[in-house]
Amino acid sequence: MKAIAARRHHRFAPVVLLALALLTTGVLYAAFTPGPAQAASAPTQDDLTAGNNLFRANCATCHGMNAQGRPGVAPSLIGVGAAAVDFQVSTGRMPLMNQGAQAPAKPVIFTEEQIRQMAAWVASLGPGPAVPAPEEVDPAKGDAAQGMELFRTNCAMCHGAVGQGGALTNGKYAPNLGKASPTTIYEAMVTGPQSMPVFNNATITPQEKRDIIAYLQAQKAGSPGGVTLGSIGPVSEGLWAWLLGIGALIGAAVWIGAKSS
């Protein structure tokens, strides 16, 4: 540090500083917008070819041979990144079976290897968010209380207080997050699939994303009060109060009122 301090009045100092600043900005930018370079293992040329073939066979009908999209049918996939492909395909949302209000999650028809290859090929078309590394989605590294505050401000209005899902306009819906994996949750935030807004790393920082994942993970312990009744709030509580509570008590009244034989 002394060496730096001694040279800080050097005439090249501004240039070096500027270069350093640019470098830092570049690095930070790269960190905030995860590029394909961050993928777990760099894809080989074979992966890209295999991915391209899979794409042509399964996706190109709608998205076009070069993933440029077809207006009114399917969006362009250039620049959506590996995360988008991994999210859509590994939850079974893509390939789409039939046009509906939105693509539902379905059984997955590809192997992990195939999904990785398709993701790699799409990622090679343009820079976009990568599939997150395991430690980026590790719930143990997140703060569930922070996650609760972030989740209820940014997510709960659509997905419900504990991620049980909810309705959107015209038959669309925010899905239940109960079975979503940490990786899927992360990918959904950075890519903004379908109706969902994008939560890039400036809006919700990577640490905050882990906090949210930790909060959702904490829901797996269930409710301290007993069965959750679907966690959909007062409607299911009211339904059970009538069916079970009032039902049982009217049953008791009928028993009390009936004559003994």
Binding site: R152, T153, A156, A167, G233, P234, G238
Partner: peptide, 16 residues
């Protein structure tokens, strides 16, 4: 969570 005017959760209903 504690009251805050900004958040809301899907399934916002009163008791039956």
């Amino acid at each position: 969570g504690p009251y805050d005017p900004s958040p809301i959760s899907a399934g916002a209903q009163p008791d039956w």
